[in-house]
Amino acid sequence: MTFDDILVPVDGSDASLTAARHARALAEAFGGRVTLVHVVPNAAYLVGDAIIVPPLLLNELDENGKVVMEKARAVFQGFTGELAEETLHGDPGAAVSALAKERGCTLVIMGRRGLGGLAGLLLGSVSNYVLHNTACPTLIVKETGFAGV
């Protein structure tokens, strides 16, 4: 099995940047492509469909997404392989899983933020959702543990 099309969801966390570093290392070793994806949660996902979210908040979420992608892009400075970027709107787990299927990705590498206990149970976990709803292998990394970085 080759990992020639790697999808990396990024949210600005240290764990997602560590995932990007892993993706870069694998892509450089095996000549693969990397796609960075940031999912901007939609208003219904944030607050439910009974409340209207002001456009200012939506603009702020989009602007934050640009900063997140900028941080992730910095991990690939000097990268000579193919790098693509996607910004999507919606439920992060569902959007990442759908994009992995649509692109025919061979690997998803993503960070785990570690919302354990009650918070993890109540809020769910994007990495857990992707792990269970994506057909390709999924590598979940913690924010630490990348040798040489």
Rank of each mutant, 00 (worst) to 15 (best):
1 M>F: 01
2 T>Q: 14
2 T>V: 02
4 D>K: 14
4 D>V: 06
6 I>W: 08
6 I>E: 02
6 I>Y: 04
10 V>K: 00
12 G>W: 05
14 D>W: 11
14 D>E: 14
15 A>T: 02
16 S>T: 08
16 S>V: 02
16 S>I: 01
19 A>F: 01
21 R>S: 06
24 R>E: 02
27 A>M: 12
27 A>P: 00
27 A>W: 11
28 E>Y: 10
28 E>D: 13
30 F>Q: 13
31 G>N: 14
32 G>C: 14
35 T>H: 03
35 T>Y: 03
36 L>K: 03
37 V>N: 15
37 V>K: 14
38 H>S: 12
39 V>P: 03
39 V>E: 14
39 V>K: 06
41 P>D: 14
42 N>T: 08
43 A>S: 13
44 A>W: 11
47 V>P: 10
47 V>K: 10
47 V>W: 11
47 V>R: 15
47 V>S: 10
49 D>G: 08
51 I>N: 08
51 I>H: 06
52 I>A: 15
52 I>M: 11
53 V>E: 07
54 P>L: 13
55 P>S: 11
57 L>R: 14
57 L>D: 15
58 L>N: 15
59 N>K: 07
61 L>N: 09
62 D>G: 09
62 D>K: 15
62 D>Q: 09
65 G>I: 01
66 K>E: 15
66 K>V: 13
67 V>F: 07
68 V>K: 00
68 V>T: 07
69 M>P: 01
69 M>W: 05
71 K>Q: 14
72 A>P: 06
72 A>N: 08
73 R>E: 00
74 A>G: 00
75 V>M: 13
76 F>W: 03
77 Q>K: 12
77 Q>T: 09
78 G>S: 11
79 F>I: 12
80 T>N: 09
80 T>P: 04
80 T>G: 10
82 E>L: 10
84 A>R: 11
85 E>F: 08
85 E>Q: 15
87 T>E: 09
88 L>T: 09
89 H>S: 08
90 G>P: 00
92 P>H: 04
92 P>Q: 13
92 P>N: 07
92 P>Y: 03
92 P>M: 09
93 G>Q: 11
93 G>I: 00
93 G>H: 04
96 V>D: 07
97 S>M: 00
97 S>D: 05
98 A>W: 02
98 A>M: 03
98 A>G: 09
99 L>R: 13
99 L>A: 06
100 A>F: 09
102 E>Q: 06
103 R>L: 02
108 V>W: 14
109 I>D: 00
110 M>I: 10
112 R>I: 06
113 R>N: 09
113 R>H: 09
113 R>D: 08
114 G>C: 15
116 G>F: 13
116 G>D: 06
116 G>M: 07
119 A>H: 04
121 L>I: 14
122 L>V: 15
124 G>E: 15
125 S>P: 08
125 S>W: 10
127 S>P: 05
127 S>N: 10
128 N>H: 12
128 N>Y: 06
129 Y>A: 05
129 Y>Q: 03
130 V>R: 00
132 H>M: 05
134 T>A: 07
135 A>Y: 02
137 P>W: 04
137 P>Y: 05
137 P>A: 01
138 T>Q: 07
138 T>M: 01
139 L>V: 15
139 L>K: 01
141 V>L: 06
142 K>H: 05
142 K>M: 13
144 T>E: 03
145 G>A: 13
146 F>L: 05
147 A>E: 15
